[in-house]
Nucleic acid binder design. Structure first.
Lengths: 109, 109
DNA sequence: TTTTCGTATGAAATATAATTCATATGTGGT
DNA sequence: ACCACATATGAATTATATTTCATACGAAAA
């Protein structure tokens, strides 16, 4: 792995390692949304949503476009889909159905 | 995305969002290593290596097998490779060569 | 041009994660 | 059984990230 990529990877993974941001990605993968819509479906403060949108935007996992007073956010590309697909398959191979991880129980607690 | 997967994804991404653990994965992708070897190549305390191996093991990104007094760690599967490949391609599409991110400069600072 | 709505941002408070240190455990050799 | 080496672990310290609150900014309407 190249130095530059490793730096970028750390940034990418840090951005994805957050429940709110994962929830935002999940919602945006269903449809484009503005900030208010996100605050409503996720039941979170507006400032929290905005703060969490920032790193997603920065990593280019999402894009934004202004529409009048509101700002529309949309999933940028196939990267997110691909990542989730890979991890889904990993989880199916290694995470037992009952949720009890054989190694430790960090994952399910 | 299913509730269970989202939980697992958070665990996966949290585990990957750490420079030491990324470095461990990088080394282990080259060859299997025991803890002492990892402490030597990464120039880190033994306890730090062990602490960081734990979540990697838990997520099944790596496996371990005892060999006498030492414990050998190895990359578990194709998941890690696939993730890095996906992010490499993402970085190539969206991260400029000069390291100056067009959105913000969080990534390169 | 003042007001209102939607969004962004800075800074403080809070929560979470990483690192270190001391020590325990586990294995093999003497 | 004891010792030495390799690794793991718990707990305290330290560092980093998240959340909240107050407020600023931008666009459109009155």
């Amino acid at each position: 792995m190249k130095r530059k990529l490793s730096k970028a990877c750390y940034s990418f993974f840090s951005t994805l390692a957050n429940p709110t941001r994962l929830a935002i990605l999940e919602k945006l993968s269903e449809s484009d949304m503005n900030v208010k819509q996100l605050t409503q479906t996720l039941k979170q403060e507006q400032s929290m949503i905005s703060h969490n949108l920032k790193p997603l935007l920065h990593c280019r996992f999402i894009n934004s476009k202004r529409q009048g007073k509101s700002m529309i956010y949309q999933i940028n590309c196939d990267t997110v889909t691909m990542l989730f697909k890979t991890l889904d398959s990993h989880a199916q191979n290694h995470c037992p159905e009952d949720g009890n991880c054989p190694k430790t129980n960090l994952l399910t607690q």
